[in-house]
Write a protein that binds this DNA or RNA. Structure first.
Length: 261
DNA sequence: ATGCCGGGCGAAGCCCGA
């Protein structure tokens, strides 16, 4: 059977619950990685999603960050937080096994630190987090499973993924050290699902709320689904649900997805 | 152009995002 996996930074699940449910009904993903839910587990609007057939795993945090997994199939073996970063106080990583008919796949929802300003403690934290993810991903890849690391990576991989590369050169999302770390992650054997399916430039997943960025299509591609070789071999399609950004009260990010056979 | 929106918190105005 075909499996549809998606990732979406929703910028508050409480504000966005109905919009997310609308998109789930039309897009029908099997598994969704959510980021920036911005609430504690106890305040997550669970029933809205359970009522339309999704199981939930949540790693919440008051006010900031927070990640979750939604799945039409049973969720088990949940890992909350990066095992390689035990003292992380921010809710940015949630991994689980998804029990599909006849097989299990492993999925993680990732909210990588933004890192700006690009020359201080916040950037150091971003690099530390990337290194910890690198270490954990290396372990996960030894399992040789169908593995999807989906999330808001806060990394613009290439010039084709930003409207104005020159203006972003020094930014924590695009500076060369950031892109090198991301490339190193791919070097472990992970594949960017979207780039596996399209070489088209200017395909964005985020547009700032300010300065008419959406209207002018001044976006960046920072939300990614990274696949193990076992997952990459099964990819049929990958896309970005850009139209969602034009709706009422949108998140500044849109869903990205991939279909595996 | 880092604060032009938008959200959290909490009840005004500040912190944060990318």
């Amino acid at each position: 059977m075909a499996i549809k996996i998606a990732s979406w930074n929703v910028n508050s699940i409480k504000i966005r619950a109905e919009a997310v449910a609308d998109w789930l009904r039309e897009a029908q993903p099997d598994v969704v990685c959510l980021q920036e839910i911005k609430c504690q587990d106890s305040n997550f609007p669970r029933t809205i999603f359970e009522d339309i057939g999704y199981n939930l795993a949540i790693l919440g945090q008051k006010s900031y960050n927070g990640v979750a997994l939604l799945s039409k199939w049973p969720i088990s073996d949940v890992t909350a937080g990066l095992p390689t970063m035990k003292d992380d106080e921010q809710a940015r990583y949630l991994e689980a096994l998804i029990g599909l008919p006849g097989e299990a796949i492993r999925v993680a929802s990732i909210y990588l630190p933004n890192g700006n300003p690009p020359d201080g403690a916040k950037y150091d934290y971003k690099l530390e987090w990337l290194a910890a993810l690198q270490d954990h991903a290396r372990t996960l890849l030894t399992y040789e499973e169908t593995l999807i690391l989906g999330g808001d990576y806060n990394v613009i991989p290439e010039e084709a993924d930003v409207h104005n590369p020159a203006a972003w050169r020094g930014d924590a999302l695009f500076k060369i050290e950031t892109r090198q770390r991301f490339r190193r992650l791919l070097g472990l054997g992970l594949t960017d699902a979207f780039r596996l399916c399209s070489s088209e430039p200017g395909q964005y997943s985020f547009w700032d709320y300010q300065a008419g960025a959406w209207q002018k299509n001044l976006g960046i591609r920072i939300d990614h689904l990274l696949l193990s070789p076992e997952a990459a071999n099964r990819v049929q399609q990958s896309g970005i649900d850009k139209h969602v950004r034009g709706r009422e009260k949108p998140s500044d990010h849109v869903p990205v997805w991939a279909i595996l056979n």
